[in-house]
Amino acid sequence: MERIFITGIGTGIGKTFVSAMLAKALNADYWKPVQAGFEDGTDSEWVANWLKDTGSVVHPEVYRLKKPASPHIAAREEGITIDLAKICKKIPQNDRTLLIEGAGGLLVPLNESQFVADLIKELGAKVILVSRNYLGSINHSLLTARVCREMQIPVIGWVFNDQYLNYEEEIVKWSNLPRIASIPWTENINGTFINSQTTAITKRLKELL
């Protein structure tokens, strides 16, 4: 089973939206092991809605934390500690490609000493990086790419989301990581939009895997 971890350059940059499209493109299962905050619904519930009747399975979270905060803080408030070994023991066991969505970016703390990047290493996953075009995203993107290089985390490539200014060519060049897709900004995320973007992303993604 191939494991692909979806992480990004920060919070609120479209990882869940991209995860739904990638799951459709690869006919893959989806798993978000750590969910922090669920008053407005979970990411798993959102993805499941878009993967109806596709054959993809949305696997349950290992940690489902109430507070919408950094996972180590949300867990602390509930009197628990996020255990990476426990997460690894819960990895879904089948032959399907598994998309794993992280919380925030690579250096989001999961406990007092380990970060999302450490979980990626423990899971033995390849990474797809999601970047959203906004003022400051070059810096955040290149820092993310540097962490991957320094920690020897294998990266498949970038998915760019939104269009503030076109930073994509520079980020691809300076990070030396390929572009998988560029998703235009839309006010209306619906089935037609997701299906059209999925079609566009599938060929390029399979070339890189």
Rank of each mutant, 00 (worst) to 15 (best):
2 E>H: 11
3 R>E: 10
3 R>A: 05
9 I>Q: 03
10 G>W: 07
10 G>Y: 04
10 G>M: 06
10 G>R: 09
12 G>Y: 03
12 G>P: 02
12 G>L: 00
12 G>T: 05
12 G>K: 00
14 G>N: 11
15 K>R: 05
16 T>A: 07
19 S>Q: 07
19 S>C: 04
21 M>E: 08
22 L>F: 05
22 L>M: 13
24 K>H: 08
24 K>G: 12
26 L>D: 06
28 A>I: 03
30 Y>S: 08
31 W>D: 05
32 K>S: 06
33 P>V: 08
33 P>W: 09
41 G>I: 00
41 G>M: 05
45 E>W: 04
46 W>E: 11
47 V>R: 13
48 A>D: 12
49 N>C: 06
50 W>G: 04
51 L>I: 07
52 K>D: 08
52 K>P: 00
54 T>A: 08
55 G>L: 08
55 G>M: 09
56 S>F: 10
56 S>H: 06
59 H>S: 02
59 H>L: 03
60 P>V: 01
61 E>I: 06
63 Y>I: 01
64 R>V: 09
68 P>S: 02
71 P>D: 04
71 P>Y: 04
71 P>A: 03
72 H>L: 12
75 A>Y: 03
77 E>P: 00
77 E>T: 07
78 E>A: 07
79 G>R: 02
81 T>L: 12
83 D>S: 06
84 L>F: 01
86 K>D: 13
88 C>Y: 13
88 C>V: 15
91 I>F: 08
92 P>H: 11
92 P>V: 03
96 R>Q: 15
96 R>D: 13
98 L>A: 03
99 L>H: 09
102 G>C: 04
103 A>C: 15
105 G>V: 05
105 G>N: 07
106 L>S: 03
108 V>C: 08
109 P>H: 01
110 L>V: 07
110 L>G: 07
111 N>A: 05
111 N>D: 02
114 Q>L: 15
115 F>D: 01
117 A>C: 11
117 A>R: 02
117 A>I: 01
120 I>F: 02
120 I>D: 00
121 K>N: 11
123 L>R: 06
124 G>R: 11
125 A>H: 04
126 K>G: 04
127 V>I: 05
127 V>E: 06
128 I>K: 12
129 L>N: 02
131 S>D: 05
132 R>K: 13
133 N>T: 12
134 Y>S: 03
137 S>P: 13
137 S>F: 06
142 L>R: 02
142 L>V: 01
144 T>P: 13
144 T>F: 03
145 A>H: 06
145 A>P: 11
146 R>L: 14
147 V>Q: 10
147 V>P: 08
151 M>W: 14
152 Q>S: 15
156 I>A: 05
158 W>F: 08
160 F>E: 07
162 D>K: 10
166 N>G: 05
170 E>S: 13
171 I>N: 13
173 K>Q: 15
173 K>G: 00
174 W>D: 14
174 W>H: 15
175 S>A: 15
177 L>R: 08
179 R>D: 00
182 S>Q: 13
183 I>V: 14
183 I>N: 00
183 I>L: 07
184 P>Y: 02
185 W>H: 15
186 T>I: 12
190 N>C: 08
190 N>I: 04
191 G>N: 14
192 T>Y: 10
193 F>G: 03
194 I>M: 15
197 Q>H: 10
198 T>E: 11
202 T>P: 00
204 R>A: 07
207 E>A: 12
208 L>D: 03
